[in-house]
Amino acid sequence: MTSRRQFLERMGWTMVPLASGLPDVSVAMPVTAPPALHTVLIDGRYPQARSLGNRIAGRGAAVHVVTDGEITDLWLREIQPVWKRRPVALAGLTGSSTLFCLEQLAWTHGLRVAFHAEHVVLPSQQTLHSVQWRDTALAPVDERTLVAAGANWSARIGDVFTSYHRNLPITATGPSCAGLEPAMPAGASLLTSWIIAPV
């Protein structure tokens, strides 16, 4: 009966108000037929994620904006109905809780995490990268590549996303450890990029 929600609320761990003015998850951007990834989720609070969203949307993928890690409506209205019919790949540049929830739900539908990288955005806006997991069938990317891309690092993540094809033989899969937070410097933010794909 004891509730972690009640506990968290009382300890002051509150949900973040939407700061960017972007639409929330229930308001999807215009959808066109996605090439391989069914949907790409971005956390609209971060410019790197918005940049990736624009880039992906320009290539015809459906993009959803999530703002606070609350994916219930997205899950019930968009993803679950599709996954009940067929397993389709999703990708995202979001907070870690979005990946954590979707990964747990994905397992039941025969999908796994095929790519997982963490991006720690320091108060100086310098970003530290850690590629946790990448199926070798996807476009290569590593920490050095991402650092070399500077502020444009999310474009390299976009390259990984667009390298996914429906018939790609995904064999090496997670689970991720997205449920547990890495140690981070004070004031830093964590973004997580990921692909969940059929195996």
């Binding site: 509150t14 890690g69 219930t72 954590f100 929830c101 964590l190």
Partner: peptide, 12 residues
């Protein structure tokens, strides 16, 4: 699943 929105790391 809104609990996880509170559990995740974010700027605030």
């Amino acid at each position: 699943l809104s609990t996880f929105g509170m559990l995740g790391r974010n700027p605030a």
